[in-house]
Amino acid sequence: METNVVDERARFACDFLSGQWSMVELCERYGVTRPTGYKGLARYRTGGAAALEDRSRAPQHSPRRTDVEVELLLLAARRQYGWGAKELLQVLRERHGLLRKHRRRRRWSHPGAAALFTDAPNQVWPADFKGHCKTGDGQYCYPLTITDHFSRRLLACRGLPSVRTALAKPVFRALFREVGLPDAIRTDNGAPFASTGIHGLSALNVWWMQLGIVHQRILPASPQENGQHERMHRELKRETARPAAASARAQQRRFDAFRQRYNTERPHEGIGDRTPSSLWTPCTRDYPARITPPEYPAHVEVRRVSTAGTFRLRPGQPFLSQVLKGEDIGLKEVGDGIWNIV
Rank of each mutant, 00 (worst) to 15 (best):
E178L: 14
L211G: 05
Q252N: 11
G112R: 01
E295S: 13
R43C: 06
G309P: 00
H132W: 12
R153Y: 08
Q20Y: 08
Y38L: 11
R259I: 10
K169R: 15
T307Q: 14
A248W: 12
R65S: 11
L116F: 12
T118Q: 07
L88G: 08
G272F: 05
P276W: 01
L211F: 08
W125M: 12
P267M: 01
L160D: 00
V300G: 01
D7C: 06
R34K: 09
L41P: 00
R9E: 06
P315D: 13
F150M: 07
S277F: 07
R105I: 13
S278M: 10
D54V: 07
L175T: 06
S18C: 12
V5K: 14
V305G: 02
A241P: 03
W108A: 09
Y262V: 12
Y81Q: 10
A244D: 12
V171Y: 15
P282E: 00
R65D: 08
C283L: 12
T196V: 15
Q210Y: 03
A120Y: 10
H268Q: 09
V32G: 01
Q80A: 15
T196I: 14
Y30D: 03
R249Y: 14
L204Q: 08
E2F: 07
A113M: 07
A42F: 04
V214S: 10
D67Q: 11
R153E: 11
G337V: 05
N226H: 06
R29I: 02
P126T: 00
T196Q: 11
R217H: 11
I218D: 08
S222Y: 04
A113K: 06
P63N: 15
T46N: 09
R242N: 09
I341F: 04
A127W: 01
L75K: 13
M23F: 06
S277I: 14
F258T: 08
R173W: 02
R95C: 12
C283G: 09
N189Y: 09
T33G: 15
W83V: 02
P282Q: 03
G40F: 14
L88Y: 00
I271Q: 03
P318G: 05
T310H: 08
V163Y: 02
A246R: 15
G272E: 10
G337I: 02
F311S: 02
C283W: 04
P161M: 02
L155V: 10
R100W: 11
K39G: 04
W339A: 01
A10K: 06
R152N: 07
D119K: 01
S278V: 08
